[in-house]
């Protein structure tokens, strides 16, 4: 299944949806950050990397993948939702790019917070899902 054209199609469809969901999450998070900082009397320039959207996607996606992998043994669902959607919803390259853009020391804190919350979320997802099928 995972080497068939049907399997590749499932990964592609999942990848499309996961990347669009990440884009939407990032837009929503940027909007909320702009709203909150304006409320606090601060301004964040449009397009400035805050990392909030990427962090949100990475934590949610890590929890969901841990849950998925322990809850289903269906290869179709794993390819569509796991390899396709959730792995594309989360991202490592943008995470690194955001960390560099934030500079020191904020970027170092961003990396630490991402690792602690992301790994905790994955462990929680695996624990909630139970044993690996």
């Amino acid at each position: 299944m995972e080497r068939t054209s049907h399997g590749v199609l499932l990964v592609a469809v999942g990848g499309f949806l996961g990347a669009v969901a990440r884009y939407a999450t990032d837009a929503a998070a940027s909007g909320l950050v702009a709203l909150a900082t304006r409320g606090a009397g601060l301004t964040v320039l449009d397009g400035t990397a805050t990392g909030v959207g990427t962090l949100t996607a990475n934590v949610l996606g890590s929890f969901a993948l841990g849950l998925l992998l322990t809850r289903t043994s269906s290869e179709r669902i794993r390819l569509l939702v796991g390899t396709g959607a959730l792995s594309s919803f989360t991202t490592y390259s943008t995470f690194v790019s955001d960390a560099v853009a934030l500079g020191t020391p904020t970027g170092a804190w961003y990396v630490a917070v991402s690792y602690v919350t992301g790994l905790t979320a994955a462990a929680l997802g695996l624990a909630v899902g139970g044993r690996d099928p």
């Binding site: 990848g15 996961g18 490592y92 943008t94 979320a121």
Partner: peptide, 20 residues
């Protein structure tokens, strides 16, 4: 950038793999 590189790389598989 956002589409290809964002989806080619993954945090969730990394996180689950590290916990395992």
């Amino acid at each position: 950038g956002v589409g290809f590189c964002g989806a080619f790389t993954t945090f969730s598989s990394f996180a689950v793999g590290t916990v395992r």
